[in-house]
Design a protein around this nucleic acid. Structure first.
Lengths: 272, 272
DNA sequence: ACGCCGGGTTCCGCCTGAAGGAACAACGCG
DNA sequence: CGCGTTGTTCCTTCAGGCGGAACCCGGCGT
């Protein structure tokens, strides 16, 4: 099919999605032939798609009854997406309020592969910003965001972070496990983390964790500003408190299910 | 790649899913090149997958910033799946209890394309059953399940059902809009629907709706048995009450979000 | 202003590997 | 004990997926 001009669309993908959609919408185990009848595609083709989708765990194959159903990877992905979306949606207004109150940049980040990734940033109008951008990564140990999360991580996740290389981003970066751990216990006591020029010279951050129902740090939020502006005791305490309050409100409206630590990345094939 | 013996796996499908997964797990808008760096595939290929996934609305393309993010169709599907799963999980124990109490078959069904579809059935041990099977369909108007749901449907969904052909499954089947509507208002008054030999001779059903937070009938549950066993007044009332109670409990623990009526089926391609 | 650069899109020829008809096998049912 | 239904495998064909490379475009630095 397809004469000229159709987009850059790959048919197998489209059709497989169609099959995925059909199966999932049924909400019950379906058979090959039933699927064939409903998505108008030849049997062999549907068979292959069902197999492929199952191999990727987007579907699950019930060998016992020869049926297919929605698979764990799909569910997992759906959940991750929902959680992340929830997070951003609930964090946004709080971040705006903070940014406005303090007139400084507010960051939202999650952990991923031993680093933190910015997933949202509310900047101030001001020009002077050697600021991160959404999607950028930074080490855990050199940012208040990372430290805020790390402090609430179980030991088995904390250990690898401390023992990894630990690059020095600036002269102030703490690179030894000892100081890091001391800081962590400090964070647990105060409920927030501070970082002064450890990630970038002249820049200071105050970060707080966002915990899920089970106390796991799913994300962190921080206020960042030039060191000079934030340095004074009073300012720091004030900002920290505001951040903590906001984080608490965000935590409160997020799914309270204990988020199972995200599974391993998908395998693409399985040749012998 | 792939010599012999690999399974019936279609590569484009696997790889596109990989791309989908990557994008979704980021929880933020991603660019083509970023994706290319992370899933190890050639640029052109990833581009095509992103396009395809976007065409299917599993992703969404932000033209303004040239970024991709999770799409509405994926979200919709995820939600449907979750709701359905919730439904079954919560309904199961109640159904078992009912089946045990009354020693009769208990059915769970949803509406789909103007018919009802059985999504779960708890049979009794007894042999004599001209019972439906999971996945089977029946008309709305000839089953207590259908009637229970129809009674709580808004008029614009009710109308089409009443005016459609309305096949007579047995001599008892009501096939005129008038009676159907009268029954519906009855159901609304009592909270349950009864059907006696209207779908299958000698078989009687009592059905109750399962409503979501906004009062929309997302499913229905019924007790079905040979007419003679269920006929007596007392029995019917008793069963109806038990069903209503159970349905209420199920409704209570399900997502209370007003489920947006499921969108139109996915288009597969878009040739000129 | 200009040219470089990085990122997105398009082109094109190769050839894989997806497609799908048909044969085959495995049940389950009568 | 066969028939029908459903799942699996085989095989041939050739569409169309692939991916390198060229191209385009907008932003940035000089």
């Amino acid at each position: 099919m397809s004469g000229i001009g159709d987009d850059y669309v790959v048919q197998p993908v489209m059709r497989a999605l169609q099959v995925l959609e059909y199966v999932t919408r049924q909400g019950r185990d379906v058979t090959l032939t039933e699927t064939v009848h409903n998505v108008k595609l030849p049997k062999t083709t549907v068979f292959r798609y069902l197999q492929s989708l199952s191999a990727a765990s987007f579907l699950e194959y019930d060998l016992r009854h020869d049926r297919y159903r929605t698979g764990p990877r799909f569910r997992d992905l759906a959940r991750v997406d929902r959680d992340l979306q929830d997070l951003r949606d609930h964090a946004r207004p709080e971040m705006h309020r903070l940014a406005e109150t303090f007139c400084e940049t507010v960051n939202l980040a999650v952990r991923s592969q031993g680093e933190i990734v910015y997933i949202d940033i509310i900047g101030t109008g001001r020009p002077v910003r050697m600021q991160a951008r959404v999607g950028h990564r930074h080490p855990v140990h050199s940012t208040s965001l990372g430290k805020a999360m790390a402090a609430y991580l179980p030991e088995d996740a904390m250990g690898p972070i401390c023992r990894a290389p630990l690059p020095a981003m600036t002269i102030n970066t703490l690179t030894d496990e000892r100081s890091l751990r001391r800081q962590a216990s400090n964070v647990r006591r105060c409920g927030y983390a501070v970082e002064i020029g450890e990630n970038e010279d002249g820049l200071m951050c105050i970060g707080v964790p966002i915990l899920d129902g089970s106390g796991y740090p799913v994300a962190a939020m921080s206020l960042s500003a030039p060191e000079k502006r934030l340095r004074c005791r009073d300012m720091t305490a004030q900002a920290a408190q505001a951040l903590k309050d906001a984080a608490l409100r965000i935590s409160a409206c997020m799914g309270t299910m204990p988020s199972p630590v995200t599974a391993a990345p998908m395998q693409i094939g399985m040749q012998a």
